[in-house]
Every structure is written in structure tokens, then in C-alpha cells.
Amino acid sequence: MSSTTPPPPPTDPTRQESGWSRLLEAAKPRANRKTAVATALALALGFAVATQVQATGKQGLESLRTTDLVRILDDQTSRNERLDLETRRLQATRDELVNGSSKDEAAVKAATERLNQLRILAGTVKATGPGITMTITGQPGQVTYPTLLDLVQELRDAGAEAIQIGTARVVAQSYIAEHDGALYVDNTKLTLPYTIKAVGDGDTLQAAMNFPGGIVETIRQQGAEATVTKAPSVLVDALQQPPTDRYARPVPSASPSAP
């Protein structure tokens, strides 16, 4: 350390202002012990400086002190906890949203299905699907209204979901009547040939019409002719006005599905 102590006042006046010359003198290459030692130390210093600079450049956690590491760990732990909490909260929100929307969706779907079912039952929409088309040819008065009624009943028994006779849609309130030798379905006068369309399982419907002693045979016995054709797609396009109930009111439902 004494090399850094302030110098004594120069004794030699010629060396007083010759800082550069003294430096040059010292810098002269000489092969002695002084130079060797100084060179060795300078080499070590340069090596250490370069090493340290590079180590600083790629400094990671391993160069930190224990206290710093503990602090960083603490920070990370608390941050982790915070993020965990956040994750749980967001997951709960997400679950809620997903469940809620799926419930709503399911409810809407169920309601739509039910609405379509009821519309077809009430005859307020056109219906299409597999089924049969039946044509009855003959003279007026041959096919009587009980036969037509039996026919409708037989179709319903066979699972027909939508029935049309002529241009009249047959629904729950439909009636079949005979007046002046003409058949009526709900005020609609039927004209020969009668065309009956029914949506349902084609095979079952066809079998229900054709069994021995069944509708087709009855019609033949009455002198008319009936043909049943199965089709993969039958369009029931006649519509019914839904009746407005003047007296009946629904009983309030106690089920939880009621709003």
C-alpha cells in the first residue's frame, strides 16, 4: 500500500518536470525481475478483469448472495400465490359462464323442440318427413264418413305425426262429417279423388292400411279403389288456425321449470 502514499518532495530538480521521460524510462523493455513480476501481476489482472466482465455479462442467479436469493424466492413465492389465487378466481368465473351458457342453450333447445312438436300437433306449420300417400278413387257416396274416420284413427294408431286429407290438416279438434253426399273435414269439402298424406314410419303406416279387413279392403268393399304409396318424403302443407280457448286456462305449474 505504501506505493500509493504521497511522494516525498523530489530531491533531484532535473527529474522535477520529466514525468513523461520517467514514464518512458519505466516503459523501456527490460528483462529483469521487476518487469517479470509486474508483467505477471498485470497478466493476472487482465485475466481477472476479462473474466469478471464476461461473468457479469452472463450473470445469472448463481452469482447472487444468499440474502438476495432468499428475497427473490420470497418474491416469487408470493407472486405465485397471487397468480394461483387469480387462476382459481378466473377458473370459477369461467366454469360459471360455461355452465350458465350451456344451461341456457339446453333450455332454448328444449323449448324449441317442444315448440316444433306442438306446432306440428296443432297443425300451424307445414310438416315433412317419410310417410305414405293414399289415393281413393270412386264415385261420391261410396266412401262413407265412418270409413274416413276409421282411416284417420288407424293412421294415428300407426304413429302418424301429421295427417292431411285433401286440403284439410287433421288435428286434435278435427271432425269428419257428411252432408248431401259429400264428405267434409273441418268445413272443407272433399272432392274425389281423395288424397291422404301422412308423415310417420312408412312401413308401419302402409301395413296399417293394407292389413286384411283393414281400411283399404273396407274401401274396396264399398266399391271404391284405394292405393297406398310409401314415400321417403311426404309434404303435409295444409295448415290449421289454432283455436283460441275461450274457457280453458292452464293450471299454474308448480314445477321449477316455470319462470
Partner: peptide, 12 residues
């Protein structure tokens, strides 16, 4: 010694 410093840095 100055050369030694430079060599040391280069080595490092």
C-alpha cells in the same frame, strides 16, 4: 507489463 495486461485480457 502493459503487454501482459493486454495478453491477460485476451486470454480471459
Amino acid at each position: 507489463p502493459a503487454l501482459g495486461l493486454i495478453v491477460g485480457i485476451a486470454l480471459g
